[in-house]
Design a protein around this nucleic acid. Structure first.
Length: 299
DNA sequence: AACCAGGACACAA
DNA sequence: TTGTGTCATGGT
């Protein structure tokens, strides 16, 4: 048992290992494509925390090597998180066969969508507004360090922490959250955490609602507009039609589909809902990653 | 050194 | 409904 908080770090007795055969799985693209913010590359492996478990993933394409600080390296939650049962070929085949999508597929083949914890995803994207991905990573790392529960790590490994619960964030002062560099987002996050902690809103049931209804529920939370709501719906609730439009995707749509025509945001949204099909969310992620990785990112 | 970042919100007009 | 200012912070 653990006797303290920070001076008795949980250390696993051993590290277990397993190999997951996969097809068309680009770990790097998947973990760095801005859908999740806690994975870090260390000695050719991606280290992160899923729920309460520290995990290290390596390889990709044809096999993923899993190391975990628990008796079993692979558990159901991991398979769900990695979405191993998704047939990527079928997803890509359902994309519209236009030039932009072909280019995006060629550039990002193997990019996947994860199935994340709704609260961690929601909190992450409340913190994401007008922040670069590296800064979002830093804010979240600070919050986990300060307010998350320590998780078991391999012997000799630096301490790692789970994502702070809604209750813990709700108990923070706004100043404490600002201390994690959250800026004006601190108030939003705290207020949203309080709504969840009080039981007014439940994220667990969202996946079973109709898309519009789930979206409406999320958008009722402080700091959650259309874009953040769509991120949560897509990355955590399994709505593969959700199509979050941020500055990059907005730019992708304008440059790749409507060069020199003025399109209002509403018309762009309308187009995105009609054009990209049942896996629109995947298409969106391909466009996002394509735009961010081509030509060094900026324009 | 300006410019911009996986936006939301209150308030115009 | 659509447009503008504001909100922090730091990477590029």
């Amino acid at each position: 048992m653990f006797t303290g908080r920070s001076n008795s770090l949980p250390v696993a007795a051993s590290v277990s290992r397993a190999i997951l055969p996969v097809r068309d799985y680009d770990l790097e693209a998947t973990l760095t494509s801005g859908q999740v913010f806690r994975w870090r590359l260390r000695e050719r492996g991606w280290e992160g925390v899923i729920g309460t478990r520290w995990v290290r993933l390596a390889g990709g394409r044809d096999a993923i090597v899993v190391e975990a600080a628990s008796p079993t390296a692979v558990w159901d939650g991991l398979r769900e998180y990695l979405q191993l049962d998704v047939d990527l070929g079928a997803v890509l085949a359902a994309f519209p066969p236009d030039a932009p999508m072909r280019a995006a597929i060629a550039a990002c083949r193997g990019l996947r969508l994860l199935r994340q914890d709704p609260w961690e995803c929601l909190a992450s994207f409340v913190l994401s507004s007008t922040k670069q991905i590296v800064q979002i990573q830093q804010i979240i790392a600070l919050m986990c360090e300060r307010y998350g529960q320590p998780v078991a790590v391999p012997p000799g490994h630096a301490p790692e922490f789970g994502f702070p619960t809604p209750e813990r964030i709700a108990a923070c002062t706004e100043a404490e959250l600002r201390g994690c560099k959250a800026g004006f987002r601190a108030g939003y996050l705290r207020a949203t955490a309080q709504r969840l902690a009080s039981g007014e809103v439940h994220l667990a049931g969202l996946a079973r609602l109709p898309l519009a209804e789930a979206r409406g529920c999320l958008m009722g939370l402080p700091g959650v507009g259309r874009k953040v709501a769509d991120c949560v719906l897509l990355f955590a609730c399994g709505f593969q039609q959700a199509f979050p439009i941020d500055v990059w995707v907005d730019r992708a749509l304008r440059q790749l589909y409507f060069p020199r025509r003025r399109m209002s945001p509403a018309r762009l949204r309308e187009f995105s809902e009609r054009h990209f099909g049942p896996y629109a969310g995947y298409a969106q992620q391909y466009l996002f990653h394509y735009m961010r990785t081509m030509r060094g990112g900026r324009e």
